[in-house]
Nucleic acid binder design. Structure first.
Lengths: 217, 217
DNA sequence: GTTATATTACTGACTAGCTAGTCATAAATA
DNA sequence: TATTTATGACTAGCTAGTCAGTAATATAAC
């Protein structure tokens, strides 16, 4: 019985290897542009083998995304505990997002693809994937956290009451979405001014807070 | 001579038709997902015919993008004339961006693709395209306009001096980039709160101004 | 402890279908 | 008749997914 359990772990490890190989390849190319052959080749397997671990390509894709969003959700939940007021917690919420995007850029980029470049997917295969549903739920959960803290901040009088919590939270997400997909031309402009990615990230965070707090000085 | 001129117009008209058909198809699908066959079929032509008007697929793509960015640049330049101070002009700059995204959503979405999803393109073919170079120049020009007005606004004391003009302008562009590519899940959250796209656009604009002006009240 | 059997892990070759781009030929027009 | 415009059939190459059969490992029998 311990044996079958060990077998199970072995199997999960292999599944893990596949996910990892695919993630690396998908970090800078689109779903359509990475073939199952290439993913399999990356870890010295035949393509057919992938289908023993994943129903189809979409399923593999969302397995990666799911892994990423789980990490994201975890980081957010952990970070916001450090704050007390709504504003504090929302600042930490923003920081967690930034940290995640810096620490796991591959996942982060990937995470914004399925929701935005959804047209590349076969909707039927997508919906049938359990992973897809969980990703969707976690996304909504993460958004809810931000929304609640802005709401709290408004009630506590630190955030302007005319700020719509949903809009502001989505805007934060929109900014990160835009930033990861930012084109080379924009990057060039920043570099010419001596602004690296990290500084830009941080400054965006600061600007965002200016956007919602009651008093700027 | 008048005849050859008419011929030339005829040719341009046809080229125009192709661009238009392609634009419509590319509005909600990726470069890779729209075939030359489909574009040609859309206006009752054979695929081979497209190659009489465009060197290759990339060239056709950038012809569309070029058309779009020309309209965008024109709208921006026209709108900002209405203002006087730097802040006023930057507000109009933001408005022009918003108007363009509302009036020509297809172009707008497309415009952010080549810079972000550049990995789908064959770089050699891309660079060799004259259209690509002009698109690049116009993009930089549009960014410069925003940067200059924020700078002016700072000098005039209406915009906070700790705002970096380049960062802020790029951020505006990043926001629009993110917004056009915003996923269905985020859209859903907004809809559930009764916020339609137009309201969200406008509110983003207002929030953005809060981000940079000196005094909020 | 060795051999036979059952289970599991894996893969090469294949199907069916799609793609961009070419080119000799045909149609339309000057 | 000459020129421009258009195309159908083709090449060469790629893709996801399948499946019969092979290799490796685990269990059972002797």
């Amino acid at each position: 019985m311990a044996l079958t359990k060990w077998k199970e772990r072995e199997r999960q490890q292999r599944q893990n290897d596949i996910i990892d190989a695919a993630r690396k390849l998908l970090a800078d190319r689109d779903f359509d542009q990475v073939s199952m052959d290439e993913i399999a080749g990356q870890i010295g397997l035949g393509k057919s083998t992938l289908y023993l671990y994943f129903k189809n390509k979409e399923s593999l894709y969302f397995a990666i995304v799911l892994r990423g969003i789980r990490i994201w959700a975890e980081m957010v939940k952990k970070e916001v505990k450090k704050g007390n007021t709504g504003l504090e917690k929302f600042k930490l919420y923003g920081k967690a997002n930034r940290d995640f995007s810096n620490k796991y850029p591959d996942y982060f980029r990937l995470l914004y693809s399925p929701t935005s470049i959804r047209k590349q997917f076969d909707m039927d295969k997508m919906s049938s994937s359990e992973e897809f549903q969980e990703v969707r739920e976690l996304f909504k959960e993460i958004m809810s956290i931000g929304i609640d803290f802005i709401q709290k901040g408004i009630e506590e009088g630190e955030i302007r009451p005319d700020v719509d919590p949903t809009e502001a939270t989505i805007l934060l997400s929109v900014i990160y979405n835009g930033k990861v997909n930012m084109g080379d031309w924009a990057k060039e402009l920043l570099e010419n001014r001596g602004i690296d990615d990290e500084k830009f990230s941080k400054d965006i965070g600061d600007l965002f807070i200016h956007m919602i707090v009651k008093d700027t000085d």
